[in-house]
Design a protein around this nucleic acid. Structure first.
Lengths: 154, 154
DNA sequence: ACCAGTTTAATTGCACACAAATAGATCGTG
DNA sequence: CACGATCTATTTGTGTGCAATTAAACTGGT
């Protein structure tokens, strides 16, 4: 019967998608106490990582890097602005754009975040090679998923 | 200088945590159009997978399996109840517990979900061995992260 | 039987994610 | 120059996640 293989596939499906999902939640839970002293949430930390690497991006440029849309980023950036970590200013050349610039406080926070990566590395209980390999696999998986997804809707 | 290695660690940290995070979001985005015909969100699908495998669990038993607390599950389960997919009934033996039972509609939905795993498998562009290996690595990572996290707070 | 402590869900408040609709600015083409 | 199409960010509404609190029900020791 065709039904015979369906339970197995559902089981594997559960394992695969849930493994990614729960690993992501576990990662968030790990970062939270580490980021608490900095006053950042995990998504906010990802945005700050982007800005520490390249200041002065627009909202959509940040969105490309963290793969989030402006509907998510706008309120998040407003909270970071309220925390005095960055400024949001209209681009004078193209007034549709909003330029995100770190404040001195925002730049200084990078130093305080220095101890975070070591803790995470330690928490993974993996050596460098394993982490690099796993990261590469996840990137490949991500781009496969996104490529397939984009063939569905349009 | 001690500063020399910090930028590298921040960069790798960005890669690792972001890889997990963005892979999870990409997974959610893939499932959404697949689950839309079933009227389920991705977390709701994960809960249904649990119930299709073992009906009649309590809220906290479901929570253990999907690693979510009652604050997340209660409203989610209420929405599934409103959709007539399950019923929430107080345990008569221990009235603190709420037993979740699938309706006929909820059980029938399993058949309609049969085509989902094949699509996902296809979307990953991985063969079975790769998927099994990746899933295992993610589970290991998850338990390492959770173990480390639990050493931080208490 | 009583009562302190524990367990289980539900509730509340805050912060994402994202679709869809909106508004303002810019661009391309006639 | 005009004007429709496109681009960019914001707003709105729904659905998670999770910490913290609350409320109700059970448990065990006296």
């Amino acid at each position: 019967m065709a039904d015979k293989s369906v339970p197995d596939l559902l089981g594997l499906d559960q394992q695969l998608c849930f493994a990614v999902y729960s690993a992501s939640l576990a990662m968030t839970r790990l970062y939270q106490p580490l980021l608490d002293p900095l006053g950042l949430t995990y998504p906010q930390y990802l945005v700050m990582l982007v800005l520490w690497e390249h200041d002065g991006l627009t909202v959509s440029q940040i969105g490309e890097r963290v793969m989030l849309d402006s509907g998510t980023l706008t309120p998040l950036l407003k909270r970071l602005e309220a925390a005095e970590l960055l400024r949001r200013t209209r681009d004078t050349v193209d007034e549709r754009r909003v330029i995100i610039t770190l404040t001195e406080t925002g730049r200084t926070l990078k130093r305080q975040a220095g101890s975070v990566p070591e803790n995470v590395m330690c928490a993974t209980a993996c050596n460098l090679d394993e982490l690099v390999a796993l990261t590469a696999q996840l990137k490949t998986l991500r781009s496969s998923l996104l490529a397939y997804t984009s063939t569905l809707a349009p």
